[in-house]
Design a protein around this nucleic acid. Structure first.
Length: 366
DNA sequence: TATACGTGGTC
DNA sequence: TGACCAAGTAT
């Protein structure tokens, strides 16, 4: 391993002192309950505190312990996750709760290996729960820690390479204050979030600035180094919001794809942007609209450009009314419009629903 | 190892 | 405004 590791300064004392004076008061920091800490860690994966806070409060209020979560339906768990993103987290959370009931007698596992075996729990989350809840000496290595350490030691190894992961993991393990694992881990992550931010880090007031090699070189924004470049690929979603009187048809996504187990309107995905006329040929080709009678297109389609991290979805929502009842199939279920909110939708579809509700409101007012 | 998985904020 | 980022994991 690199030479600098032979002589690593202790950062624990200034770090923890800084943390005590600057930390945010957050509900999951006021407990040692591994269940509560687990929920908070899953919600906070790739998610800012401000974005996940309300979800956390609602989630633990409805599902206060492992047993309640395990006995809930997955659809209800998804509903509590609706709009938060990365929905596999919710599915895995539910599956892991059942796993704890079945394999750990309903008691939250208290070993690193046991915790790591839970669905949706990787090395970071296992280390976080072990240290925060049980004060076990496992160093957390998340985006904050990568950033703080890469700057502190001016490390140019890409953090998204296998060599980089190994190097940073070893370094984090050496730096860890093993006697104060919980607070040390919290402190280094909080430093990354509040002082050592990705852009314009606040080096004034940083307890480690005198030891920071990136700071000495005035190259803070150069770190951390990454090798991967994300390529954004387009998809074209054509949604048919079909109504017969008060009834609409929705579908549960089940494929190993985006928004798995969430609901949506009738979807025709195309490999390019298509018009409604082109779509109709496809509709009849698919037999989807067999014997529905006349189709009335209500107003203009609602067009959305939905930008995701590695994907861009060009969506068109067509609000349609039909003259005849459609049968309920295995794929499509009939729902009264007033009951749509019982189902969990993606942000894209929620935005569409907001839009048509706003239009209805406007029609009522004027 | 590279890629997929969401959403919202920032410059 | 496109690109990057935020308490990662699974495949």
């Amino acid at each position: 391993m690199a030479d600098f590791m032979d002589n690593i300064p202790s950062i624990s004392q200034p770090l923890i002192r800084w943390y005590e004076q600057n930390k945010r008061e957050l509900p999951w920091r006021e407990t040692k309950d591994p269940y509560i800490i687990w929920i908070s860690e899953i919600i906070l994966q790739q998610t800012r505190v401000v974005q996940g806070y309300d979800y956390f409060v609602r989630f633990v209020s409805r599902f206060p312990d492992v047993k309640v979560l395990a006995e809930a339906s997955e659809d209800e768990v998804m509903k509590y996750w609706e709009g938060l993103g990365y929905y596999s987290r919710a599915r895995n959370l539910h599956a892991a709760a059942k796993q704890i009931m079945a394999d750990f007698g309903g008691k939250f596992p208290d070993t690193y290996t046991g915790i790591l075996s839970l669905k949706g729990v990787g090395e970071y989350t296992a280390a976080a729960i072990c240290s925060f809840s049980y004060d076990m000496p496992f160093a957390v290595l998340d985006g904050n820690v990568y950033r703080v350490l890469s700057r502190l030691f001016a490390l140019e190894t890409p953090i998204d390479s296998s060599v980089g992961k190994k190097q940073f993991s070893e370094l984090a393990g050496i730096l860890l204050d093993r006697k104060h694992a919980a607070i040390y881990n919290q402190a280094i992550m909080e430093l990354g979030a509040l002082q050592c931010m990705p852009r314009s880090p606040k080096c004034e007031g940083c307890p480690l600035s005198d030891k920071c090699m990136a700071r000495a070189r005035n190259e803070m924004e150069k770190y951390p180094v990454k090798q991967g470049k994300t390529v954004v690929k387009p998809r074209y979603f054509n949604y048919l919001h079909i109504s017969f009187g008060d009834i609409t048809w929705i579908h549960r996504r089940t494929a190993n794809d985006i928004w798995r187990n969430l609901y949506e309107f009738v979807l025709i995905e195309t490999d390019r942007d298509v018009t409604f006329e082109q779509l109709q040929e496809n509709i009849f080709y698919c037999n989807l609209m067999d014997g529905v009678g006349r189709i009335e297109l209500k107003g203009f389609p609602i067009v959305r450009k939905h930008v995701l991290s590695h994907r861009i979805i060009y969506a068109r929502f067509y609000t349609l009314s039909i003259e005849r009842e459609l049968p309920e199939t295995e794929d499509y279920i009939r729902v009264p419009a007033g009951h749509l909110s019982d189902y969990a939708f993606s942000r894209l579809t929620l935005d569409y629903l907001d839009e048509i509700n706003r239009q209805k409101l406007d029609n009522t007012l004027f």
